[in-house]
Simulated scan of single mutants.
Amino acid sequence: MSKFGELIDVEIPVLLDFYAEQNGQLESMHLVLRDVAAALGDKVKVIKIDVEKNQELAEALRVKTMPTLIIYKEGEMKWRQSGDQDANTLINIIQEYI
């Protein structure tokens, strides 16, 4: 978990996308996250986390639904939402924390 702490304890917003390979929405959210990363550049860090490979972390954060999107800034959770989001909505939410 210490690596996770280092990952989220940064000055820019960190958008975490918890996903599962068997989830049918995987490709559409991948495209949304790509657009978000392209629009915001180095103002945000976008990280995809496969819950199958990171079960301990997913359980610790009580991730039950895919996708689950979480924004951290300076180690503190700022926003969390389960289910698909569109790129414009995510960009607007992240900009509140930049």
Rank of each mutant, 00 (worst) to 15 (best):
L15A: 03
Q85P: 00
F18K: 08
L61Y: 02
V63C: 01
A20M: 09
F18S: 03
V51K: 01
R80L: 06
S28M: 13
K48H: 07
F18N: 10
E27G: 00
D50I: 07
E76H: 07
M29G: 09
A20T: 12
Q25G: 03
S28K: 14
V51H: 05
A37G: 12
L31D: 14
K78P: 02
K53H: 02
Q25Y: 12
H30Q: 10
A20P: 01
L69M: 12
E27F: 02
K48Y: 04
K53Q: 10
G83T: 12
K73S: 07
A39K: 11
Q85D: 01
H30C: 12
D35M: 13
Q85M: 12
T65A: 10
A87F: 04
N54C: 07
V46Y: 00
E11H: 12
D86T: 10
S28C: 12
A58S: 13
T68K: 06
K45Q: 14
S82L: 05
I70D: 04
V44I: 15
Q81C: 08
R34H: 05
D9M: 02
D50Y: 07
L61H: 10
V44C: 05
M66P: 01
M77P: 06
F18I: 06
V14E: 09
L33H: 05
A38K: 14
L33D: 02
G41H: 14
D86R: 14
F18Q: 10
D42F: 08
L31Q: 14
V32Q: 11
L69Y: 03
M29R: 04
E76V: 14
I47R: 14
R80E: 06
K53E: 13
Y72K: 06
E52S: 12
M29W: 03
Q25F: 04
E21V: 12
A20G: 03
I70R: 09
L31P: 04
G24H: 07
L33R: 13
K53D: 07
P67Q: 08
K48M: 05
V36F: 02
D9W: 05
D17S: 11
P13R: 00
M77K: 11
W79C: 01
Q55V: 12
L33V: 10
I47H: 04
D17R: 06
A58R: 03
V36T: 08
A38V: 13
Q22P: 00
L61E: 09
V36L: 10
E74N: 15
A58L: 01
Q22C: 03
Y72I: 02
R34I: 11
V36G: 06
D42W: 09
L26A: 10
E74G: 08
D50F: 10
P13W: 05
A87E: 01
L16E: 01
G83C: 05
K53C: 11
D50C: 02
E59N: 15
G41N: 09
S28D: 07
S82V: 09
L61A: 12
I71E: 03
K78N: 05
R34N: 15
